[in-house]
């Protein structure tokens, strides 16, 4: 048993290193040029955002429509830090501060609002994100208001991008596979039964919310550092919706689903650039069609395992069950 775990662990590390190396090679040889690098960064940011929202919505069952709010807090925190001290260590510090500030705000917002359920929580978190946006719009001295902050030095490169992305995904993966994560999942399944079985539901909802917020903060920090420029309206309601779409498309409660969906949707979006006039219309139609024909998302709540054969077998079994 222990040996199996170890080999599995080794396999996972190998897969990670391989991913890193291949993409590094593609970047070094310039096969992955500027435009595709933008896509790559967007994919990584969206992976972090989607996986962290999945923790809140998919695993813990708390419907949040305000994830972009936490992202904006991270983006501004990191931007302000690196604009003042333009060094790599201060960028790393900025990312951690971004996570910390977002976590604190997540705690302050989560504690009162997580008593609400379902759509009410969704609408409260939406309101919260709008308030955050409004505050950033009005704090002229710190955030430069609606004009936003520009000229943010770019410290993020593929190495750091990979570290932060893989890091957050692994942390969340570890969390949902721990007893604490199971406590969160039990809240999604049946809150009253979870309480009766000794799960402090308020505590675990808030914990999920804090971890999710902190990761969104990291995503925001990466965004600010890569794209030079941020302004409050970038992190509005539509951004929150974008993230939710990735999560639902990948499958609520599936980390690998979120990762795959983030990649697929970014590729679709890149491909649709060619039809810029009707890009959003096609995207919208796609969304509706996917929801009508596969409302549980790509993966449902299942995970992709490393063993491809096992996966295929799983798909097969799945089909039989449905008949």
């Amino acid at each position: 048993m222990a040996r199996l775990l170890k080999t599995n662990w080794v396999k996972k590390s190998l897969a990670l290193i391989l991913t890193y190396a291949v993409i590094q090679l593609l970047i070094s040889t310039n096969i992955l040029g500027g435009y595709y690098q933008d896509t790559l960064v967007t994919i990584c940011i969206n992976i972090i955002l989607a996986v962290s929202l999945n923790l809140i919505t998919g695993f813990t069952g708390q419907f949040s429509l305000g994830h972009a709010g936490f992202m904006s807090i991270g983006a501004y925190t990191c931007a302000i830090v690196v604009l003042r001290y333009q060094t790599l260590p201060s960028f790393i510090l900025g990312v951690f501060l971004a996570a910390l500030t977002a976590a604190i705000v997540g705690f302050l917002v989560g504690l009162p609002t997580l008593r609400l359920r379902g759509d009410y929580l969704a609408i409260a978190t939406l309101g919260m994100a709008e308030i955050i946006k409004n505050v950033f719009l009005n704090l002229d001295k710190i955030t430069n208001g609606a004009a936003g902050l520009s000229g943010i030095p770019q410290f993020i490169n593929w190495f750091w991008l990979f570290v932060f992305t893989a890091g957050t995904v692994l942390l969340i993966l570890n969390f949902v596979n721990s007893s604490h994560g199971r406590a969160c999942i039990s809240i999604r399944e049946d809150e009253i039964a979870a309480e009766a079985m000794g799960v402090n539901t308020t505590k675990y909802k808030v914990i999920a919310f804090i971890i999710g917020a902190a990761c969104a903060g990291v995503a925001g920090a990466i965004y600010a550092s890569y794209f030079y420029f941020i302004q409050p309206t970038l992190f509005g309601f539509l951004k929150s919706i974008d993230i939710l779409v990735i999560v639902v498309f990948g499958g609520l409660g599936s980390i690998s689903g979120s990762v795959i969906a983030a990649v697929v949707l970014a590729l679709i979006s890149t491909y649709l650039q060619a039809f810029s006039e009707i890009r959003m219309v096609l995207y919208a139609v796609l969304l509706v069609v996917i929801m009508i024909f596969r409302p549980q998302g790509l993966m449902g709540s299942k995970e992709v395992s490393l063993a491809v054969l096992g996966k295929l077998g799983g798909l097969f079994r799945d089909r039989k069950e449905r008949v």
Partner: peptide, 15 residues
């Protein structure tokens, strides 16, 4: 917890 395994149902209660 209907959509979880038998094992997870018990493990959650051990939390």
């Amino acid at each position: 917890f209907k959509d979880l395994t038998v094992l997870d149902n018990v493990r959650i209660a051990m939390h």
